[in-house]
Simulated assay, not measured.
Amino acid sequence: MDLAEIRHTPRPPGRREAGNVALAAKIVALQAEIAQLEARAAGHRADFERERERTDRLMVELQQAIAETIAAKEATARLEGFLRTDGRTPGSIDSHGLVARRPGHLAADLVAGDRKAFREQSMSSHSQLAGEIVRQK
């Protein structure tokens, strides 16, 4: 093979440089678009975290409301059970008027006991929920 027979014509350097410039411009444009998308993603993440915290607060409130409802239903059932099993006829009065005062005292004792039980239950459920939230994060 004779190297003199090979005709090599080099490409003009201007074309290659123009291609590099166009490629560099595309890279810059894509980097700018990536930066915009990252900023939007950060905003969406902040919205997500804010909504997660709001949901957690609402769940605590819901659990407290459920506990209050359960305590009220239990107190009502106890009062109704007491009134049904009292054994006295309505309107009967003993010599000191204790029968008339007894349901009021019983109701006050039940409400006080329910409040104490509710506080203990709320603290327990709140600490459990906080533990679950910490484990999820």
Rank of each mutant, 00 (worst) to 15 (best):
K116P: 00
R119D: 14
A22E: 14
H44Y: 13
R15K: 03
G43R: 14
G14F: 06
A75Y: 01
I27P: 04
L98G: 03
H8W: 13
G87M: 09
L58Y: 08
F48A: 14
P103D: 00
R101M: 10
E61M: 07
H8A: 05
A22H: 02
V21S: 11
D2M: 03
E80L: 09
G81M: 05
D114A: 12
V111A: 10
A24R: 14
L23V: 02
T9W: 10
D86Y: 02
I27C: 08
M59C: 05
D94V: 08
G113N: 10
E53F: 12
I133S: 06
V28D: 15
A117V: 01
L98C: 07
E38G: 03
R52M: 15
R16Y: 02
Q136M: 07
G87V: 08
S92E: 15
G104S: 05
D86E: 10
H8V: 14
R54Q: 14
S124Y: 08
E132P: 01
A35N: 11
G14C: 03
G104N: 07
L23S: 11
R50I: 02
T76Q: 13
D94W: 06
R15Q: 13
S92R: 13
Q136T: 00
A72F: 03
V111M: 04
A112V: 06
L58H: 09
A112K: 09
R7D: 11
A75V: 12
A71S: 14
H96E: 10
I70G: 03
R45M: 03
G104T: 05
T9H: 13
V21P: 04
I66P: 02
T55D: 01
A100F: 10
L37D: 11
E17Q: 13
A25L: 14
S125E: 12
H105K: 09
L58Q: 14
E5P: 00
M59P: 00
D56Y: 10
G91F: 10
R15H: 08
R78P: 00
P13F: 07
A22M: 11
S127K: 01
A107G: 01
R7P: 02
E33A: 14
G113D: 12
A130F: 06
R40H: 06
F118H: 02
L37I: 11
H126Q: 08
P103H: 00
T76C: 04
R54M: 07
E53K: 14
R84Y: 03
G19W: 06
H44N: 11
F118D: 01
V60W: 08
P10K: 12
V99G: 00
